[in-house]
Nucleic acid binder design. Sequence first.
DNA 1: AATGTCGTCAACCGCCAAGAA
DNA 2: TTTCTTGGCGGTTGACGACAT
Length: 306
Amino acid sequence: MGRAPCCDKDSVKRGPWSLEEDATLKSYIQNHGTGGNWMALPRKAGLRRCGKSCRLRWLNYLRPDIKHGGFTEEEDNIICTLHSQMGSRWSVIAAQLPGRTDNEVKNYWNTKLKKKKQLLTGNTSNATTKSDKMIYSHDHMSFVSKAEPHSFVTSASSQPQNLTDISFGLSSASFQGSLGNSDPVQLYCPGLMDVSEFGATSKNSSTSTLIVSLSQDSSSNISHSSSFALDKFVSLAGNGYVDDSGVLTGWGFGSSRPYGLDNSLIFPEKLDGGFGPTCYPNMGDFTFTDIKSQGVVLDPNVINQY
DNA sequence: AATGTCGTCAACCGCCAAGAA
DNA sequence: TTTCTTGGCGGTTGACGACAT
């Protein structure tokens, strides 16, 4: 036996709200509040609507502090950063954007930002098919192209987990130089700009760290070039670590910035009961040596600018 | 002008967690 | 302690408008 419906679907109105319904709901809530009971509200307000529907209409549209209209570039950056950090936790992301609702942020991501992200991966046809994949395990990482889904193994679970959230076109990246502890790192990614997703660090703070973050400006058609502006490089530094259970945690830029120099740095929090969607498991043995062996080269000139 | 395709976004669905009974 | 109710959330759907053919 299934769950009982929250309301009788035959007796309530569904679909788009009319102006009259909006006015009724708004007026009722402004005069009486929600009363802490959305289920009872429509009856009290004289609406033939499900309580859930009323709640959604109020929270997503009628609330006086809702900000309607296009997203700013700053909001874009915040959404991208937080989404990379915590995945699809839209309510949490929306909470960082005054006047925006989780639904609005979610829609915006799905219609605009996700596409941008897909462009950066070189994929324009399918959200789940990535042009290039990065795979890693305890002791290696590599780039592979046009691949079917890969998996990696975490030290905590020893179970393969699909890499659904980490991929980008790094196959042509160049990377040279060396790193000291907590040196900022920039990864030169021809054709790729800004932020996004992937981080690695070591089990203790005495070894190298790496973050790769990418996105692509769809209006540009950048070919390999050495004249990128600084902010076109991925940059990183910080004090993240992988704890004993293999969860990457505790990342920051200096003492004040939770994210990267260009908002590119994102690290997942450890979630109770397992890895969150963007919780990158153990990369404790992932070092630059490994990266170099795969032909990824750090540009020392870029490092020196920090 | 008619039809098809795509993008957007409001609204709904169903699951889960918290708290009340 | 268990069961039930409700709120909250993320995923998905479907209506509608814009644009392309």
